Amino acid sequence: DYFTVDMEKGAKGFGFSIRGGREYKMDLYVLRLAEDGPAIRNGRMRVGDQIIEINGESTRDMTHARAIELIKSGGRRVRLLLKR
């Protein structure tokens, strides 16, 4: 199942961390959800969800650093296409 999650940044960021990336020879996944962060309050994202797109850009062969950069580059908002 594919689904989109739109979030607005909180005081401590978006409230999730990721693992994976090209340099680890793996796809990008949601690693952790911060307690009471925007990701957990949104209610749609879960640990283990695969991140397919960040702000419309495919994560295929994307490095971990580039993924972080893209998440931050959207300013106060981020849109993720996830797969569960």
Rank of each mutant, 00 (worst) to 15 (best):
A39W: 05
S17P: 01
T4E: 05
L33G: 03
E69R: 05
V5H: 02
M45W: 01
N42S: 10
G74C: 13
V78D: 01
N42R: 07
Y2Q: 04
K9M: 11
P38I: 12
G10S: 11
R60D: 12
S73E: 13
G15L: 01
M62H: 03
R46S: 13
G13L: 02
R76K: 14
L31C: 15
G43Y: 07
M26A: 14
R84V: 03
E35Q: 08
Q50T: 11
A65M: 08
T63Q: 08
Q50W: 07
R76I: 09
K9I: 15
R76Q: 15
A65R: 09
L70M: 09
K25T: 07
D27S: 10
I52Y: 10
G37C: 10
I40W: 14
M7S: 01
L33N: 03
D1L: 15
P38R: 06
L81V: 14
E35C: 10
I52G: 04
I68M: 11
A67K: 00
R32I: 05
Y29T: 14
R79D: 07
G13I: 01
S58C: 13
E23I: 00
R44N: 14
A65Q: 10
D27N: 10
T63W: 04
Y29E: 15
R41H: 11
A67D: 01
F3W: 03
I54K: 00
G10E: 05
S17C: 13
R41N: 13
G13Y: 02
A67P: 00
G20P: 02
T59K: 01
E8K: 14
Q50G: 07
F3L: 06
G15D: 03
R66D: 07
D36I: 05
I40N: 15
Y24R: 14
G21F: 01
S17Q: 10
G15V: 01
N42W: 05
M45A: 04
G74Q: 08
G48V: 01
I71H: 01
K72D: 12
D61P: 03
I71K: 02
D49S: 02
A39S: 09
T4H: 03
I54T: 01
R46H: 15
L82T: 04
R32K: 14
K83S: 15
R22F: 08
E35W: 06
G74I: 04
L82F: 04
M62S: 06
D49L: 02
R44H: 15
S73V: 12
G15H: 01
G56C: 12
I40D: 14
I51P: 00
K12H: 06
D1R: 10
R22W: 04
M7P: 01
Y24W: 10
V47Q: 08
M62E: 04
D36T: 09
R79L: 03
H64P: 03
L82G: 02
A34H: 14
A65E: 12
R41P: 06
I51D: 00
K72L: 07
R46M: 11
F3M: 14
L80G: 01
K72S: 13
R79V: 10
T4M: 04
D27W: 04
I18R: 00
G56V: 00
K25R: 08
G15P: 05
D1A: 04
V47M: 06
R79Y: 13
K72I: 07
A34N: 15
M26N: 06
H64D: 03
R79P: 00
E23W: 02
R76N: 10
I18S: 01
E35T: 09
L80H: 01
G10N: 15
I68W: 15
D49T: 02
G13D: 13
G48L: 04
S73Y: 09
D61I: 08
R22T: 15
R22N: 11
H64L: 09
L31F: 10
K12W: 05
D27E: 11
R22E: 15
E53G: 06
D6T: 08
F3N: 06
A65G: 08
M26F: 03
L81A: 11
E69T: 13
I68P: 00
D61G: 08
G37E: 11
V78N: 03
L70V: 13
A34M: 13
H64Y: 10
D1W: 06
L81M: 14
A67Q: 00
A39M: 06
G48Q: 05
L28G: 00
E23V: 02
Y29Q: 11
R60G: 12
Q50M: 11
G20H: 07
R22H: 03
V47C: 08
A39P: 07
R22D: 08
L80T: 01
D6M: 05
K9N: 05
V47S: 09
E57W: 10
E8W: 09
V47W: 04
D6Y: 05
E69V: 07
G48I: 01
K12N: 12
I54C: 02
K83L: 14
T63V: 04
A34V: 12
M45P: 03
Q50F: 09
E23D: 11
I71A: 03
K12R: 14
R46E: 13
G20K: 03
T4R: 07
M62L: 09
M45Q: 02
V47G: 09
A67R: 01
V5A: 12
R19V: 05
M26T: 12
K72T: 10
D1Q: 15
N42P: 06
L70A: 10
N42M: 10
Y29W: 10
F14K: 02
R60H: 08
A34K: 10
L28N: 00
S58Q: 07
R44Q: 15
M45L: 13
G37R: 06
A11I: 15
S73K: 13
F14R: 02
R76P: 13
R19K: 06
Q50Y: 08
S17D: 14
G13V: 02
D36N: 12
T59R: 00
V78K: 01
S58I: 09
G56K: 06
D1M: 03
G21S: 03
A39N: 06
I18Q: 01
P38D: 14
R84P: 15
D6N: 07
E57N: 11
L28F: 06
D1I: 03
G37S: 13
E35K: 09
R66M: 07
M26D: 15
G74T: 14
K83E: 15
E57K: 13
S58T: 10
G20C: 05
L82M: 10
R84Y: 03
K12T: 08
I52P: 00
K25D: 10
I18M: 14
T59V: 08
R46W: 08
K72C: 15
Y2G: 03
I18L: 14
G13R: 03
I71F: 13
I51R: 00
G56D: 07
R66I: 06
L81Y: 15
G21P: 01
I71T: 06
I51Y: 00
N55R: 03
Y24K: 15
Q50E: 14
I71Q: 04
D49A: 02
L82P: 00
L33D: 03
L31E: 13
G20T: 09
S73H: 06
V5R: 01
R77Y: 13
H64G: 08
I54E: 00
K72G: 13
I68D: 11
I68C: 07
F3A: 03
R84T: 14
D61E: 12
I18E: 01
G75P: 11
Q50P: 03
F14Q: 02
T59H: 02
G43N: 05
E35V: 07
K9L: 15
T59Y: 02
I54P: 00
G56N: 12
G10A: 13
Q50L: 12
R76E: 13
D49H: 03
I54Q: 00
L81W: 04
R32V: 10
I18N: 00
T4N: 12
A39E: 08
I68E: 10
G13Q: 04
G48T: 03
V30F: 02
N42K: 07
L80D: 00
G74E: 08
K25S: 10
G43T: 08
G75T: 12
Y24P: 07
G48H: 06
I52H: 10
D61L: 08
K12I: 05
L28P: 04
G74M: 06
K83C: 12
I40G: 14
K9V: 07
Y2T: 06
E8F: 03
L28Y: 02
S58N: 08
F14C: 06
R60E: 12
R46N: 14
K25M: 07
I71E: 01
R44K: 15
R41F: 10
R19W: 04
E23C: 02
V5E: 03
D49E: 02
I51S: 00
K12E: 09
P38A: 13
R44Y: 15
M7W: 05
Y24M: 14
S58V: 09
T63K: 11
G75S: 09
Y29L: 10
R22Q: 15
R44M: 15
L28T: 03
G75R: 10
D1F: 04
T63H: 05
F3I: 15
R66K: 10
F16I: 05
I51C: 03
F16D: 01
D1N: 12
Y29F: 14
R77P: 02
E8D: 09
R76F: 12
E53N: 09
M45F: 03
R84I: 02
K25F: 09
